[in-house]
Design a protein around this nucleic acid. Structure first.
Lengths: 193, 193
DNA sequence: ACCGTAACACTAACGGTTAGCTTTTACTAA
DNA sequence: TTAGTAAAAGCTAACCGTTAGTGTTACGGT
């Protein structure tokens, strides 16, 4: 599936990475709002249009690994052990992601995100996308036997859990508490599994 | 509390309303993206800066009654009959709001919103604000006896219910189904009420 | 060696948004 | 009434994210 990338692909990936690294460094040094796209482009030694060829928006520069997140959610559902119940699998993945976001080095980044309305808004809509794709993954699992609406709802709840726990004083305890609620909500929608 | 407004306040409100009405009309006529702020200002016969004195952004022109929504959620909690359980009160209000949004005349507006990424994103962050204020209202109710986190979580779930039901094929049934789940989630967090 | 095309550069512009400053208009106190 | 004030609205000019249009370079397959 993944053939060895040629020089062209490597250069493209390198350019993308250089832009993302430069942007993040500048944002953290001077503040997100104080750094313009033109600054990023100049510091990365590329044209402004090249920045937008790799990233859809200024905010996307900060959430570079967006798609990894999305896949981790869906894989927690599709890739779980046979007959493993859904909710514990979801819980495990959410806990892992929350811990990843609240790790030591990530603090300045999240401080920056929380400090910028534009970034907060972007992250919110990102989460909604993640919830949608998670819902699709759940609805595609024949073993669940739930309505589409129940899947969509639980998907939202799980993403809410991630969002709430990430900002909580005690993230682990928050995941515990919220997933007890989600478990109850899930069980009332049908038989076990 | 609300003294009779003087001429100044009335004129200000009139200007605001004229801008909102003009904007909505133009948006529906020509499409949201095809109408610029300068067009709105010209058609409402005000300066561009006046538009932004009344509305924080172009998107805010569409969600003029934002704050009414927010208050209806919180009042569903704070203004419910003594000893009335929380969840049914929330459910009633969510159902009313969903019906209001899916009523006949509202269809073109929501078609416009769903057709514009900027508007969708704005609505999402609006919902999050509503969830926050709803959570505050819930946490302030001494009769509930729940953790802050449980309140925040249920608040999010309730807003999710609104969002999901509004877009559902059968909004009433969706509210039913989702609130059965919310009820179960709520009950697992503590004693009745 | 050659061609197609992906990646990037450059310029110029568009549209939302804001700053700075002036003008008008409603309220208030003498 | 009148003068003083502050709110509301206006005007100009710009900033900044983003995009279109148009070349230019360099990789990859033939």
């Amino acid at each position: 599936m993944t053939a060895p990338p040629g020089r062209r692909a490597r250069k493209k990936a390198a350019t993308r990475q250089k832009i993302a690294d430069t942007a993040l460094r500048l944002f953290l040094e001077r503040g997100y709002d104080a750094v313009g796209i033109r600054d990023v482009a100049a510091a990365a030694d590329v044209a402004v249009t090249t920045v937008f060829a790799h990233f859809a928006s200024k905010e996307a520069l900060v959430f570079e690994q967006d798609e990894d997140f999305e896949q981790r959610f869906t894989q927690a559902v599709t890739g779980r052990a046979p007959h493993e119940p859904l909710i514990p699998a979801l819980r495990r993945e959410v806990l892992a992601l929350v811990r990843h976001c609240t790790a030591e080095g990530a603090a300045p980044i999240w401080r920056m995100i929380d400090g910028s309305p534009a970034l907060r808004q972007y992250e919110e809509s990102m989460r909604l996308r993640h919830a949608e794709s998670l819902a699709v993954a759940m609805a595609a699992d024949p073993g669940l036997a739930r309505t589409t609406m129940a899947c969509r709802t639980i998907a939202r709840f799980a993403i809410d859990a991630y969002s709430l726990a990430r900002a909580a004083a005690d993230p682990d305890a928050a995941v515990d508490e919220i997933f007890r609620m989600i478990e109850a909500a899930w069980e009332v929608t049908g038989p076990g599994e």
